[in-house]
């Protein structure tokens, strides 16, 4: 039987406690709870945070929502801080001060991971430190007020990629961060969506237990920045997977193989299940200019083309043609 037994699990309180000040309906809170419930030994875990919404909202001085040892350093060096924590515990273990090196979990937003913290993350993975890095990807710098980041998708409105007569939002495609990390070759990499919670928890546990660097790219719909009502968070996270805008897969560093996860594998086996990208876009106000005042079929077709291209590339990587 799986270790995930809801009725037992739900009796435990989360290590990321109530009283944090993330916006109502924020997916980061859901991802955080799911990941922290996947920790095998709650007494031996250290959380490292990159700067971001979640870091700020989780620990507004003098309050902290973390019931575990927690450290924040800066935007660009979350992975480097985690490396230091791991080495410090190793040294303490050699001196006999602690009995075991705790599990180290890093949380970083897309700004702190895809743009600013990429070099320290790449370095920590190359050095092979044992930690799990969870990227909660809300597609922009939401903490400072919805500025475009390397993870913002094409044609999305942000405050620094305004929609007007000249440009229809961000013109560039997003950075394939999970593929970049997988290309290092020695890390367990997975993508996850909070809508598929069991899949996310299993991947988190796998990442924690993997002896070496692990990276989870989780999509984190942001109701403020993506402009949808807060109760639709999980619906949006689900549609991202169903439209293949955010397919779920894993990379196993031992066999060097990519593998589709069940929700995406079902779509690969039965392409009829793949929903048009329009369904995902029309829920979000940041793409409203694609539908109003007149429907921009050309731009929607371009986004669909991007999605199809990435999806077909992924199918090839997974050996499904």
């Amino acid at each position: 039987m799986s270790w995930i037994n809801l009725r037992e699990l739900a009796k435990k309180r989360s290590l990321f406690t109530s009283g944090h000040r993330l916006c109502a309906g924020c997916a980061a809170g859901i991802i955080g709870r799911l990941v922290m419930h996947s920790v095998p030994d709650p007494k031996h875990v250290v959380v490292v945070h990159a700067t971001g919404c979640w870091e700020v909202a989780g620990t507004i001085f003098p309050y902290t929502a973390w019931a575990v040892p927690w450290i924040h350093n800066a935007f660009e060096n979350a992975a480097a801080t985690a490396s230091g924590v791991e080495l410090a515990f190793k040294a303490l273990k050699d001196k006999g001060v602690v009995k075991k090196v705790p599990d180290i979990i890093v949380f970083g937003g897309d700004g702190g991971t895809v743009d600013i913290g990429l070099q320290s993350l790449s370095g920590a993975i190359e050095r092979g430190h044992n930690f799990l890095y969870v990227l909660y990807d809300n597609n922009a710098y939401m903490n400072t007020g919805i500025q475009r980041s390397g993870a913002t998708p094409r044609y999305a409105w942000t405050t620094t990629s305004q929609v007007g007569k000249v440009i229809p939002g961000k013109l560039e495609a997003r950075k394939p961060i999970a593929n970049i990390i997988a290309a290092h070759g020695n890390a367990y990499v997975a993508t996850a969506s909070p809508a598929y919670w069991r899949d996310l928890m299993e991947k988190a546990r796998k990442g924690i237990e993997y002896k070496g660097p692990a990276f989870i790219h989780a999509i984190s719909p942001c109701c403020r920045g993506w402009r949808f009502p807060p109760n639709m968070t999980i619906r949006v996270a689900k549609l991202a997977v169903e439209t293949c805008a955010f397919p779920l897969w894993e990379y196993d560093p031992e066999t060097r193989e990519y593998k589709l996860s069940p929700p995406s594998l079902a779509i690969a086996k039965n392409p009829k299940l793949k929903k048009p990208i329009e369904e995902y876009l029309k829920l979000q106000g940041r793409f409203a200019h694609l539908f109003k005042p007149e429907k921009r079929e050309d731009l929607i077709a371009r986004i669909q083309e991007d999605v199809d291209k990435e999806w077909n590339q992924l199918l090839e990587l997974c050996g499904i043609t």
Binding site: R7, A10, K11, R13, S14, F16, T17, S18, G19, H20, L22, C23, A24, G25, C26, A27, A28, G29, I30, R33, C223, P229, P230, N231, T233, I234
Partner: peptide, 25 residues
């Protein structure tokens, strides 16, 4: 629940209104 404000005691599901932000998920 992003706020961990659904409480399960083994028998019934309750809402902890001290923390629920009312997102409606």
């Amino acid at each position: 629940c992003p706020d961990d404000s659904i409480v399960w005691d083994g028998n019934t599901v309750q809402v902890d209104y001290r923390y629920c932000k009312g997102c409606g998920i």
